[in-house]
Amino acid sequence: MLVAAAVCPQTPLLVPQIAGNAAGELADVRSAALDAVARLCGERTDLLIVLAPTEGSGARRTGLTGSLRRFGVDYSVGGHDGATEPCCGLLIGRWMLERTFPAAVPAHEGWEVGEQTEPGECARLGRMLGERAARVALLIMGDGSARRTPKAPGYFDERAEPFDDAVARALADADAAALAAVDPTAARTLMVAGRAPWQALAGAAMAASSRAWHGELLSYRAPYGVGYFTALWTGAEPDATARDAAR
């Protein structure tokens, strides 16, 4: 069952070696993401699942090892052997795990979900992932709209900021229903890279409805015209919730 989740940006610019002289511009975003990962892994979990968006539709389990050479640096994560090349979000998720736990990364799995995957299928994926261990933590990778400013990758769209603001509220409130209701067509138009993983999180949280979910928005910024969210969801134990209600 899902017991905790973190939502983090998947931009490779979180890696200082890739950002170069611009590393300081994302220092607060990087710090918030690493804090979220550290707190996530402190929730006494049996299995950490990193979920990130990729092209197409459907989902598949994959490794968390690969090279960041595609981003201009000779740098690998997870003891890369050249056999696999997962999506960007999984590589950045693995980098954050290694940065947070340099001695030993917690027990984990990597999963990719296609950005064109329908909301209902995303929800089913989330429910399935939540059942992979007694205490599951999800590290959800993905970005908001890439159309926040005229210099953004997708140029400016006036709908981008309201869209991201609504996602930020849902993450802050641990509102799984609001995430589940995100319109995939709007997300695609606004070049949102996190919609499918967010909706998998919603499915997992709804399946763990006996827990009282608490959300915390640790960071919400849009440098370079792209929405970056960092949030942490924790679920109070069902018996603890019952005890509190009885007091």
Results as ranks from 00 to 15, higher is better:
38 A>K: 13
44 R>W: 12
105 V>T: 07
105 V>Y: 05
83 A>M: 13
56 G>L: 11
178 A>P: 00
148 R>I: 07
28 D>K: 13
21 N>E: 15
155 Y>C: 14
220 Y>W: 14
230 T>D: 03
193 A>M: 00
169 R>M: 14
11 T>K: 13
247 R>S: 11
170 A>T: 04
2 L>F: 06
11 T>P: 12
93 G>S: 12
138 L>T: 04
68 L>I: 10
8 C>Q: 04
7 V>I: 07
98 E>Q: 11
222 A>P: 10
95 W>K: 07
154 G>N: 07
75 Y>N: 03
79 G>T: 10
231 A>E: 03
202 A>F: 01
121 E>Y: 11
49 I>K: 04
145 S>L: 05
228 Y>W: 09
9 P>N: 09
77 V>N: 06
76 S>T: 13
106 P>H: 04
1 M>N: 10
40 L>V: 05
151 K>L: 15
245 A>V: 12
174 A>E: 05
36 A>K: 05
60 R>E: 13
123 A>F: 00
54 T>H: 03
89 G>V: 02
223 P>R: 13
151 K>N: 12
39 R>T: 08
188 R>D: 04
123 A>V: 02
4 A>H: 07
59 A>F: 05
209 S>F: 13
40 L>E: 07
10 Q>Y: 02
14 L>K: 10
133 A>G: 06
10 Q>I: 09
38 A>I: 08
214 H>N: 15
98 E>T: 00
102 P>I: 05
113 V>F: 01
93 G>V: 07
52 A>C: 08
159 R>W: 00
213 W>E: 02
205 A>T: 03
225 G>D: 00
208 A>I: 03
127 R>Y: 03
136 V>I: 08
160 A>L: 09
218 L>E: 04
41 C>H: 08
240 A>F: 15
196 A>I: 07
119 P>Y: 03
214 H>R: 14
240 A>N: 15
110 G>E: 09
68 L>S: 03
48 L>I: 07
58 G>S: 08
152 A>K: 01
191 M>A: 09
117 T>C: 04
183 D>G: 06
122 C>D: 01
22 A>Q: 15
76 S>Q: 11
188 R>P: 01
47 L>M: 08
190 L>E: 04
171 L>Q: 03
